[in-house]
């Protein structure tokens, strides 16, 4: 082939510069990108440092005049919860105008209300109504159940109450969680159901009173289990330490223990009406350890000495297990 093919015109200066520029820019670009993305050090997978969020306290200042524990006996959720709240000084003591209230029910299992394994819809309705009466601008209901979330909220009757009362029902969705940091006995870093707390200004725990196969009981302290995600099935290896850590993790405005119908056996799932005993009692208070102490000895009717987490929490100054030493009142609605 001849070196000077007449059909082949040589590149002009402009084209030469443009083509050289494009190639040069690509070389420089890949070099810069590689430099930017280069990771010169190795790391050990699974041991990266995490820094989670800190949960603030939602508790009110301690009152020297008003009781911190209220026990009301009655047969209807609405009246009895109202009576218990009356003893504490009314819902207005806790909820002010414009508050966004997060109510945390226990909806762990797909159970109808009669089996007493989940927060009763009448209890949710009564508490939500009191919140709105006190001026709450919005009430959020959220839980991360063990069984399927949609099934649990549907069958417990809580999604119906949420629709009826215009409550914000938040399901534990994929993006609902964020890492939480805690200096617990066992619980240090854990994935946390965070979306409700982006808006909430007040937090109310609303738990049924239940037998529990491993922990002996599931009441207002263990209720916060439903705010965590991830591998919760490891908690059982240190169940009492973990449950006492919940008292450190969550400083609620108020907790309410629903002892109208108590799951006495086969907990925490129940399954038969014969597992349920009517105890016709609502316990409300600002100290979940005091509330649970009353619940264990007077509603589940068992010996408080065996409920390890209560003693752990008491010894760590996270609550008072001697509920009789606190300012309490009792009434029959």
């Amino acid at each position: 082939m001849s070196a000077s093919n007449p059909n082949e015109s040589s590149v002009n200066r402009r084209e030469f510069l443009v083509r050289l520029g494009i190639t040069g820019a690509l070389i420089a670009g890949s070099g810069l990108a590689a430099r930017k993305l280069w990771q010169p050090n190795h790391f050990v997978p699974g041991f990266e440092k995490e820094k989670g969020l800190q949960l603030k306290s939602y508790a009110q200042e301690v009152s020297k005049v008003l009781p911190s524990l209220a026990i009301a006996h009655g047969t209807e959720h609405d009246k009895t919860i109202r009576a218990a709240m009356g003893l504490l000084g009314g819902m207005e003591r806790f909820i002010q105008h414009g508050d966004v209230v997060m109510i945390k029910p226990n909806v762990a299992f797909d159970r109808p209300p009669a089996l007493a394994a989940t927060t009763h819809p009448d209890a949710l309705r009564a508490v939500a109504k009191l919140c709105f009466e006190a001026g709450a601008s919005k009430v959020i209901v959220a839980d991360n159940p063990i069984n399927s979330p949609t099934g649990c909220f549907f069958k417990s009757g809580l999604s119906a109450v949420a629709a009826e009362m215009h409550l914000d029902l938040l399901y534990p969705e994929t993006n609902s969680f964020a890492p939480l940091s805690l200096t617990g006995e066992i619980l240090k870093e854990w994935t946390f159901f965070n979306t409700p707390f982006k808006q909430a200004t007040k937090v109310i725990g609303l738990a049924p009173c239940k037998d529990h196969n491993l922990c002996h009981a599931s009441m207002t302290t263990k209720n916060w289990y439903g705010l965590l995600g991830g591998r919760r099935n490891q908690f059982h290896q240190h169940i009492h330490s973990i449950v006492s850590d919940f008292a450190l993790m969550m400083k609620p405005t108020l907790v309410i223990l629903d002892g109208m119908n108590v799951l006495m056996s086969n907990g925490p799932t129940g399954g038969r009406l014969s597992d349920v005993k009517p105890m016709n009692t609502i316990v409300a208070g600002t100290d979940m350890i005091a509330v649970d102490s009353y619940g264990y000895s007077h509603l589940l009717e068992r010996d408080l000495a065996e409920l390890t987490y209560i003693h752990k929490a008491h010894d760590r100054n996270l609550g008072n297990k001697n509920w009789k030493d606190t300012l309490y009142k009792e009434v029959t609605a």
Binding site: F109, H212, N213, L214, H236, H238, N266, P268, T269, R272
Partner: peptide, 26 residues
């Protein structure tokens, strides 16, 4: 199984067993 072979408390299985009386007992 953790309690059977690894000296570790667990029984999550018993907790979640939904029948009454529970089919899993410990």
């Amino acid at each position: 199984c953790l309690p059977w072979s690894m000296e570790t408390p667990c029984v999550v299985c018993e907790e979640v067993c939904p029948v009454s009386p529970k089919a899993i007992y410990s």
